[in-house]
Design a protein around this nucleic acid. Structure first.
Lengths: 215, 215
DNA sequence: GTCTATAGGTCGATAGAC
DNA sequence: GTCTATCGACCTATAGAC
């Protein structure tokens, strides 16, 4: 009995992943409002009714996709932390600013690959649902905390403008992760992903302005 | 007869303006998808049927609001141009970069006042509708052209990074005009509008990074 | 005030596993 | 033969359109 149950659970797990992957793609391409549950079911290859056995609402689907991307972000961040620890142990510490840049580049790469789900900024119902989604909030706070440590370090050491509230920096990084500029440049089709990432990362950290004489 | 017709037209005009103002507010606060035509009619103080005499679809309403904000932007830009012309005539030319900053600040101010209608970036149907909306496209191109002149000037004179495609700069300015960071900082309630504008303008042009030694 | 289409959400028939 | 998972068909409310 135990074994069968486990197999069933695994099958269910695979299906859930297929659904979340479908939601992720659809959120990345069409956005939340244009995404229909029927489409999700079709892409994931099951009936809508079956889908509703696993997820009780469209909002929960969105939440699951966001949990997925936040988990990937956290995994990436933890990888960076581990690498930085090693590097520091062998005497060549990594600057906090470089960690923040690496995360930003990862987010843009993810967006360029069509794997960054993005939700409408203004949708009170959906935000409310997400804010009462513990799995989502847990990841969001974890990620924010990890980034905030780097932000504080970088501000203390002068790598980031210390006059900005840390909140501003954090919000800016989150906003750039789904910056429409990336999507627009991608659509234009004239540039490589590498160029787009370099440029938008550069505008984020160094701004649009040219090098001015010391004022 | 002529007079009555003119009066009717004027009344119609006032109604149209009331409708567009309502759409503008709703787009700024709830976004396109969450906005219902019923709400627009209610806010504008007329029956939905009457509204459909003046605007044939929800998309057209959105288009009208966008035309409105683009017209205001164009008016602001033309004001800047006129001032700059005067200043140049009296021997103190205005830097193109400062003009771009002024427009950016205007946009953020508009957003903070809840007067910046913003549409979902990803909505193929709506984009298609807008792109076939001549009034909208005309304004969009006019504004882009005027900004592009300043961008070219600022790049030539080294006030803006010349290595960036002008397109990147233009898109970035448009994107910052409805930057979610502004909305998030506003929501937090901890900062004045002036602070928010200064900070986001600063991150846009000078970036998040601190002043580093020459590398 | 009415019509209609769409899309979120449910239910009962069916089929396949044990 | 029973039990449960699955899916087509269905319901209904909302919102655009007239």
């Amino acid at each position: 009995m135990k074994a069968r149950s486990s197999i069933k659970e695994q099958i269910q797990r695979v299906r859930e992943q297929a659904i979340v992957a479908a939601v992720n793609r659809l959120l990345a391409t069409k956005g939340y409002d244009a995404m229909t549950v029927d489409e999700v079911a079709a892409e994931a290859g099951l009936a809508k009714a079956s889908l509703y056995k696993l997820f009780t609402s469209k909002e929960e689907l969105a939440g699951a996709a966001m949990v997925g991307v936040l988990d990937r972000a956290l995994a990436f961040v933890d990888g960076l932390r581990a690498q930085a620890q090693e590097a520091a142990d062998s005497g060549s510490p990594v600057a906090a600013l470089d960690q923040l840049k690496a995360v930003t580049r990862w987010a843009m790469q993810t967006q360029l690959e069509g794997e960054m789900p993005s939700l409408p900024a203004q949708n009170s119902h959906l935000s409310a649902s997400l804010q009462s989604n513990d799995a989502y909030m847990d990841r969001l706070i974890s990620l924010s905390n990890r980034l905030s440590i780097w932000i504080a370090e970088a501000q203390t050491s002068g790598q980031l403008q210390a006059r900005f509230p840390a909140e501003l920096v954090l919000y800016t990084l989150f906003a750039r992760a789904c910056d429409p500029v990336v999507a627009l440049l991608k659509e234009s089709g004239q540039y490589t992903h590498g160029q787009i990432i370099d440029w938008v990362c550069s505008t984020t950290f160094d701004g649009l302005a040219g090098t001015r004489p010391v004022a």
